[in-house]
Write a protein that binds this DNA or RNA. Sequence first.
DNA 1: GTCTATAGTGCGATAGAC
DNA 2: GTCTATCGCACTATAGAC
Lengths: 236, 236
Amino acid sequence: MQAWPVDNSFQAFKRQLPICRNSVYSEFYDFFRDVIKVKRESAAIKNLETICTATFELASKHGFDAMSLRDLSRSTGISMGGLYNYIGSKDELAQMVNDFLSRRLAPMAALNNPKQDKPRDLLETLLRTAIYMGSLFRPWYRFVYMESKTMARKQRDQAKSFDLYDTQRLRELIEAGVRAGDMDCANPELSASALLAMVQDWYLKSWKYKRNNIDPDDYADFLVSTMDKLLACKDQ
Amino acid sequence: MQAWPVDNSFQAFKRQLPICRNSVYSEFYDFFRDVIKVKRESAAIKNLETICTATFELASKHGFDAMSLRDLSRSTGISMGGLYNYIGSKDELAQMVNDFLSRRLAPMAALNNPKQDKPRDLLETLLRTAIYMGSLFRPWYRFVYMESKTMARKQRDQAKSFDLYDTQRLRELIEAGVRAGDMDCANPELSASALLAMVQDWYLKSWKYKRNNIDPDDYADFLVSTMDKLLACKDQ
DNA sequence: GTCTATAGTGCGATAGAC
DNA sequence: GTCTATCGCACTATAGAC
């Protein structure tokens, strides 16, 4: 029984995803229609892109807490008062990024997944999706990873529970594979953590991978082959 | 030819290391004798421990930049003026931690390494050393990883070059193993990055590993077995 | 050697002009 | 809808008492 061939490339992923790098700020505007005071849509979307881009840039250089709204105002060319038509407060800006990624952007990738039965193939899809999403929206993922610890207690715990959730989802697939006899793994929990650490390294150390000309397909291929070795997968 | 059996446990590592958790602040005082204005040694060492411990705690909660010297003063019970007898400035405090780890603490582990020839065994020693050092001095490693990006340009570049150096050292050992016919690895650079990401995950996500009762020996054993699988090592 | 008090700076946020 | 001007506050760092 031969499964229908699946195109696992970054190209194919982008084609199927119901959002792209260009439409993300239009989605962002829709998502926060209620809190954003500016009603002229086209200008608002353009300014949101400017604000987010500058925030990612400044926060990655000195941390979100060290970034002042004066810095942000200077970088974006939008006055202090103008910024408050978009963000409510500085803390709220960080929360908006966090919420948009976890409630809107990330869920879109899940819709994209092909229907598969074998745990090993589900694992591959899960890992590839994480790498491809991280490639398309790297600044968002980086920001949430790095800054979630500085946010309010509630947000910090949320970040931890996302990490635990991801680890657990990987672990359960590994355990299912072992039960099915397709894999061999002495420590599903640690193996899941290791795979997750490799996923996160992709957007945390983008400078290193760019330097070495590793593209998303290269990294995803490597990650999947590592998974196959780590879990001694049959029929790779 | 049977090599002398090597004790690779955390216990054995601690026994051989010429520094321990208790003596680290005495070393710290020695290392910064010139800049620390307090000359009464015993009191100075005790206060340095209080200051560093509180700094790690506060910085891990909200980031070093968000931590104020008032917070630090309150946590340590040392007045604002008193702090300046130890640290010169807030930025200098971060640099002291960074310098002490990279110039004093980390080099001590290197002295500890047994003499070994085979690339695979050298790799094991390197990885175990990293995990055990990270276990003993976790807050130091965490702080430097998380805060180096917020430091001055020079320090940021230093952090990157340490990462590149570690990756390269791992890669060269992998390449040597492949040449010697002991390993099989299609992509030494990415394999080295993956191992390094797992090392760093150990001190970045300590909360997760503590939660699951993973101790340093468990993690080091898992890391080495992962290395053996990833590199298809012979004679493990 | 450690404290209190404070100088001087830059912050987040807002009110009100246009 | 965006700007300028400004308020009140918290910060780092220091000076001088003890």
